[in-house]
Structures are given as C-alpha cells and as structure tokens.
Design a protein around this nucleic acid. Sequence first.
DNA 1: GAGGCACGCGCC
DNA 2: AAACGGCGCGTGCCTC
Length: 604
Amino acid sequence: MRGRSGYGSGAVLQAGGLKRLKKEMSSNAWVVRDEAGLREAVRRLENRPILACDLETTGLDPHRDTVLLVLIGDARLQVAVDARAFDDLRLLKPVLEREGLTVFHNAQFDLKFLKSLNLEVSRPQDTMVLEILLAGGRRVGPRTLKACCERRVGLSLDKAERTSFMNYEGELTDAQITYGLADVLATYHLFLEQTGAIEDAGLGRVARIEGAATDPFAELEYRGIHLDRSSWERLLEEARGAREATLQALRAAVRPVVNPDLFGHVSVNFDSESDLRDLFGRLGYEDLPDLTKATLSRLDHPLATALVEYRVHQKVLSSYGDEFLSHIHPVTGRLHPRFKQLGAATGRCSCEGPNLQSIQGGDRFRGAFSAPNGRMMVTADYSGCELRILAELSKDPAFLRVFQEGGDLHSLVASSMFGKQVSKTENPDLRSRAKAINFGLCYGMGAAGLARQISSSVEEAEDLLDRYFSEYPKVKQWLDMSADVAIGRGYCETMAGRRLYLDDMGDPERRQQIIRQAKNMPIQGTSADITKLAMARVARALRSRGKDAFLVNCVHDELVVETSESDADEVARLVRKEMVSAGEVFLKEVPTVVDVQVARHWAK
DNA sequence: GAGGCACGCGCC
DNA sequence: AAACGGCGCGTGCCTC
C-alpha cells in the first residue's frame, strides 16, 4: 500500500503518555490519497467492532468550511484520508455504515461535517457525552479530549497543532497527520476505559439511548430551522411602538419625584435595578424584596403597572432583536443553534445561539418559524409527560386512574380533591389550584412555595397539600422515598438509569435544595430519557422510509419536524407512532399521549 | 475592554 | 415560619 508512513517522532505523545500508542502509530499508520488506497483501507476496516474517528477541518462551520482529513482506526490500524484528494468519499460508506461502533469525541461536530460530504454514521458513540454521563453532575473538570484522556487514560496530548488546520490550504504536513492520528488513538483508548466505568455504574442503557440520539442532534444542528424574517421584524416593530408608549407612562409616573433635566427630560434608566429601587424608595416603597413582576403587581401604583408593561416589550426587543436575527446563516438562510445533548445535569438537552427552547408560546412568535415553500411543519408534544412519569414512579392507584380515565388532568385532580364538579369552565379556580400543585410537586415544592404560587396563606396551602396527599398518598410516599434514598446513596437516577450525584450536605437550606433536586431529577430526567429515545426512533423511521423530513427543534417534551407537503400526514402519523412507542418503553401503567399538529408553521 | 455576578424572565 | 426543578440570555454593574 502506498502512503505508508512512520510517525514515531513522539512530537504529539508527550512523556507520560502511553508508549503503546506511540508504537501503534509508528507501525500501523497509513495515509490514503488515492482510490486504490482507500479501497484497501476500507477492506481492512469494515469489519472492525470498534473504530475511533476524527475529522480535521478548515473551521467550525459545516456549511462553509471544508474537511481536510478523515482519520479513522483502532489500536491495530489507523488510516488518515486526505479528503481533498477525492471528489467524494462515498467509498467510506461501508466503514461508517458497518455494524460496529464508531467513536468520536464531540460527535456532533464530526457528524455535521460528514453530512456535508453526504456520509452518515450508523452507530456513533461520543466519548464527550459518555464522560458527562459518568460525571453525573459532578464537577470533574473540562470535557476536552485532552482533559478526559489525562483523567482516565493517563495520556497527555499536545494540542498545539490543532490551530494549524484553520483556513489551511497547503499540502498536509506529517505533523498534522500525526496530530490527527494521535487524537483517534486517544479517543479509542478513552472509549475502552469509559466502557468499563459505564457498566460499573449501570449506565449502559442510558449510554445506548444517548448514542442513538447523537446523530439526531447533529442533524438538528446541521439542518437548522427556517424563520420568516419579515414577519419577525414586524413583531419587533410592534414591540418598539408599544415600548415607546409605555415609556411615556413611566416618565409621567415618576415626574412627581424626579427633577427633569435642563431640557425637561426625565433621565432614569428603567432597566437599572438601582435606579428603580431609588424611585420606589422616594414613592414610599422602601423594602421591596425584589422587583419581579409578582411583587410589582401587588403594589397597585402607576409606576409599577407601567414598568410591568414596559418589561413585556423590552423583553421582546432584547431577546428577539438584532442579536437574534444575526444568527440567521448567510449560506442556508436558516437558524442553526447549538443543541447541547447533555446541557442539563438532569439529562435534558439545552440550546443556544439562539435558544429555540425559550421562544414565547402561542402562534405570534412560533408562527414565524415557517416551513419553506412546498413544505410543512409537524409539531408533536407529550401530553402531561412529567405527571405521567410521577404516576408511573409512584404507582399511586388513584393517580394512575386519573390518567387511565383520560380527559382534563387538572380538572380530574381538582374534582377528586374537592369533591366538586370541576372543568375549565366550572370552578376554574379549583382547577388552577390543582394545576399549581401538580406542577409544583414535580419540583419538590413545599407549602410555602405553593402559597406563593397561588397567592394564598401558608395555612391554606398546607391544607391543600394535605387534601392532595390524602387523595394520592403514594405520591407523597414516593417523593419522600426518592429524597431519602438519594441522600442515602449519594445520587438519584432516572428510569433509564441516568444518574445525578448529589453534593455533600451543607447548611439546612442547601440540604432542602438537594432534597428538591432528588425529587425532581428522576421525573425531569426520565422525560429526557423518553424524548431522546423518541428522537432516535423518529429519525430512524423517517430515514428508513426515505422521507424528505427531518427534526428542526426539540423543546424537552416536544419535537418539531419539517417535511415535504406531500408527506405531511404520513410523517405526522409516523412521528406520533414513534414518540408513543418511546414513551411506552418506560410508561407501563399509564398511557402515553402525544398531541400532533400539522401546519405551515411551528404550532402551539 | 473582558469577565463575572445578580437580576429578571422566556421556555418546559 | 416555610425561597419549587432545569436551562439561556439581556441588562446593569462591578472588578481587573
């Protein structure tokens, strides 16, 4: 084979690194620059059970930057494919689509670039994700490949060469290839170390779920979502007008206590907490606990009223203004936020740049996320997901019955608590109280929190909780047991076995916080287990049926899929079916209900 | 000028 | 008497 190389200089593998790696690399590294070489490499790699893979690219953007090197191998053989020497890399398909695992560090990055080359990976695994799973919320240090290898393999990597790839156009140097191959070997050995630890911690099941969800997350980022810029800008214009009007009201409200400047203007920064505290002080409100909407609403003063309204518009303008629109990609014309697969310690993903998980509800803003011409959006969400999980976990017979009966959950709970007919129209106050408890319980709420939430006295709130728990005693038992067990063993876990290790107890306040986390995490985290499994199943189903459809957003218990118009109804059925099946993997005694909408826009 | 904090608030 | 879980992001304000 051509391109045999002897990279044994040790420039990359520092003292203290594994001599084994150095030896492996010096004798088994191959550079592939032509079709014959690639065919031979593929022949030798396509049956390997575990391969590590790493890409070197000219930058971070798969829609603008290019792949320089595809490096792939295991302890016995490593191949460096000079990507620019090939018109396309379809010859690699048998390797990437083989039965075995293909391991990356930060797989989303590499998978996106592989997508830009029309390559898919059948069974990716991600050592960065596994490292976060193993950490289970503990602060064990950075998750870079270098840091993970130092912690787990006792191997030290020199990352100095990394920046050389940025905007690189010349012939690849030996140093660059050696660097890439060292990363592949490091990833491979890191994965082997992690595998044992994953089994020891009972994390195998959740690791498989995460592995299956990795490509859907990469797809989500790569495809992006379309935003109708002109209708978005209309919303901003409305907000600008409304903010100006409320500013007039604000200035009028403070005029009695503020000296206008030389030009008769009132110069107060209504975004400044200290300015506002000063103003409220002059108006006789000295010791406000905070300046939140809830506190201001109780004041019944023109300044407070106007401030609450001002903030509504200011929030829109600051959240969705120029910075937001600057994220529209110049090449694709779409938003490509980053989805951090394990962004939250509970197992949820998070989203940034911009955050598509905090777009205001309702059609006003979400309606601007439209499908391009000839396409449709399917919006699907799990109905009452966390409460169903609480029912399943607690096995409370009455609570289970509420879900098995179907109908409006909060009304049913309110009816059984208060012994009265309750619906969205009959006794709606009782319904909203039941609703506050339902949600609050998932957060480990106590009587004080409930009292605050529904603006009642603490006694009243205690009474409500007593009623609730006498109706659903095993719910309380489970919540208390969950906290006790978690504190006893130092971690809590989801139904899939995902773990969150709890800090050592500090002061009583901190202890209470940990107890609330221990009650909440199994619920929130199991919801994440379900949604990630659903993402994997939905993506697989869409692909296997050859649908021109893909995920464009994930909002914790909600998936949004863009599809060709002609397939919309079939895709909607498919999305529902796969989401329900994912839910039923965990929810055995409670039905899984998924609401699906088909529209031109992101719905709800 | 960058970085970190507190605050407030959008979502689930 | 009693401060409900998980995020990202904009603003002001402080420090270096």
